[in-house]
Design a protein around this nucleic acid. Structure first.
Lengths: 153, 153
DNA sequence: TATATAAATAGAATATAATTCTAAATAAGT
DNA sequence: ACTTATTTAGAATTATATTCTATTTATATA
């Protein structure tokens, strides 16, 4: 399935605000509500849209202390990798984790309340994972940009 | 305004899937639809919920080449900082940018189609920003975890 | 502890929107 | 040009959101 211009515009709109009425999208795209309804259904079933979610204000829910933590494993055995990754997935403080090229093996994004909570997390949870060799943390001083939207054109 | 247990459970649900019916949330929380409706309204007006968005499948929309790019500025003048940040915000390939502590000044998350597109981006857009001193890129080999959800408890 | 006041909830009523259905229009393939 | 499939529109229906009123529950105050 291929996306045409209208699909892309629709996806851009849905990424901005998925709670508008079908009528509102229809108006913006100059189509009927049925046409829009069918397109959305296709985009959902086609796997383009993963999910619809509420995004919270980090500071309002006390999760605005963000840390980027680079991790190196002690040894790159398949077992180590799998165990490490499984444990990372379990940690609710970790919002993102990528296996990456370069000096370190993984880059993690960690969201907690404050430095104290980060220390707790490091001591009790992260460094408790014994596949980890070394880590390096960069603390977020300010958020310059943060979006979930991919601009399609 | 303070969040009680029910609010937190509701926020957790809305972060998972914001498109369920009020009735569905009401059922899960053992409340009436009106009660849930009012709570959601409060969470929205109280600024806890920033927005409702559709999350797309990166690979389906050809944005699954992810790079973490660390950036160092040539000089830390206020002017340089502001100019750099303003330009970064403009770049649609950059989904995230944080001012960070440590060796580098910024960590950027970049989403493009492939290595070729990344090269284009680097040459034509990123390194065109003349406040940048040096950069270091880590390429994502695999996504271990990726969520927008903060677990509230 | 009794009383007043505010906040939260439930259920019914209403308004609005989603979804389905049928038919027409458009596009694609032969 | 003709057939077939896809997309679209408008009306009809179903489901849901939203409002309203009355109760209940919680909170504050004397």
């Amino acid at each position: 399935m291929r996306l045409d211009k209208i699909d892309k515009r629709l996806l851009n709109l849905l990424q901005e605000d998925c709670k508008r009425t079908t009528k509102a999208y229809a108006l913006a795209l100059e189509l009927s509500t049925t046409a829009v309804f069918e397109r959305i259904r296709k985009l959902e079933n086609g796997g383009f849209i993963k999910k619809y979610v509420a995004l919270l204000d980090n500071s309002m829910v006390q999760k605005d202390f963000t840390v980027f933590c680079q991790v190196r494993l002690v040894q790159h055995t398949k077992q180590n990798i799998l165990r490490f990754e499984k444990q990372i997935q379990q940690l609710q403080e970790v919002s993102n984790c990528h296996h990456v090229s370069g000096d370190y093996d993984y880059i993690l994004t960690i969201n907690v309340k404050d430095m104290k909570a980060y220390r707790e997390f490091m001591v009790n949870k992260l460094t408790a994972i014994d596949q980890i060799g070394s880590t390096q943390s960069s603390f977020s001083i300010d958020v310059i940009k943060s979006t979930t939207q991919f601009v399609l054109e």
